[in-house]
Amino acid sequence: MSQSKQSVGAPLLEITNLKKHYPIYGGIFRRQIGSVKAVDNLTLTLQQGETVGLVGESGCGKSTAGRTILRLTDPTEGSIRFEGQDVTSIRGEKLRQLRQNMQMVFQDPFASLNPKMMVGHIVSEPIRNYNRIQEKALTEETMQLLERVGLPAEAYYKYPHEFSGGQRQRIGIARSLALKPKLIVADEPVSALDVSVQSQVLNLLQDLQDDFKLTYLFIAHDLSVVKHISNRIGVMYLGSLVEIAATDSMYRSPLHPYTQALISAIPVPDPLKRKERIVLQGDVPSPANPPTGCAFHPRCVHATAICREVRPQLHQAAPGHQVACHLYTT
C-alpha cells in the first residue's frame, strides 16, 4: 500500500494461475455437470507505468480476465496481488477502498453510461463516493476532467444521449480518471468506435498515461490497435496465455502458431505488398469442453502426439519472450 513498502521495480499487479469457471447446471436435480472455463490459468505481471495488451478472438476470456482482475467477478482460483497486497479474496469495505486504485474503461460507450444521469454527475460520482468535497469544488474539478479528455466544460449539463460514441467513450475515460487510479483496465475501449475516432481515443489514452502515471491493461481483439499502444502483448487462447512478449519482438518473430496466424491476418494497406496469410482451420473449441493437451492442437498444423496429451506451460523462449508451445521445448 504505502510507497515505502514498495521496492523499486516491484510489479503493480501480479496475477498467478488465475481461474474463472462458470458452473453449468443440468439434469432434473440441477446439479453441476460441468463448467465453462472462461479464464484458465492466467499468469501475468504488470509493471508500474507500462501498457500490456491482451489480445485474442471473441470468447477467449479476455474480458472476463479483465473483470476478474478488478474483482468485478470473483475468481475461482489463483491469486491477484496489487502493489504486493493479496486482493484475491478481500470483500466489503476493504474491496471498495481498493477500487479507488483500479478502474475500468468499458467496451460499449452506449451501455456503460447511465442514460438518466447528467454527464457531470456521471463523471463526479466516483469522487463523491470516496470524498467529502464541496459541491463547487467538485463541479470545477469535474469540468477540468471533461476538458482534459477533450470535451467542453458545458458537457457537464448534458445527458449521454446527446453525444456520439467517441465522445461517450471520452466521458467513460473521464469517469475512470476521476479517482486518479494507478491501474486502468481498458476493455476493448475503441472496438465500438469508427476507425477515424479510434486513433483519437488511443492518442488520448496515451497522453493520459504520461500525465497521470497510469498503468494500462489494454484488452483488444485487433492486433493493429494494441501494437500502437502497448509495451508488451499477451496473446490469449481459450482462457490462458499462449505467448507474451515485448511488442517489437512479438511482431517481428511471433513464435506460437496461433500468434503467427493472427499476425498474418493483419491487413496491410498496400496493394502491391502481398503476404502469405495463414488461415486457421476449424473453430474455437468450447471452453466448457476444451481439448486435452494443448488447447490449440486441433487447429495447429504442427501438432504432434505430445500436443494432444500434455498441456504446454509458458516458458522463456527468448529474453523477455515467453511462449506456451511444445515446438520450442527442447
Partner: peptide, 9 residues
C-alpha cells in the same frame, strides 16, 4: 453502467 457503478465504488 451497473458494473461501472460497482467499479467506481
Amino acid at each position: 453502467y451497473v458494473l461501472a457503478a460497482v467499479s467506481i465504488g
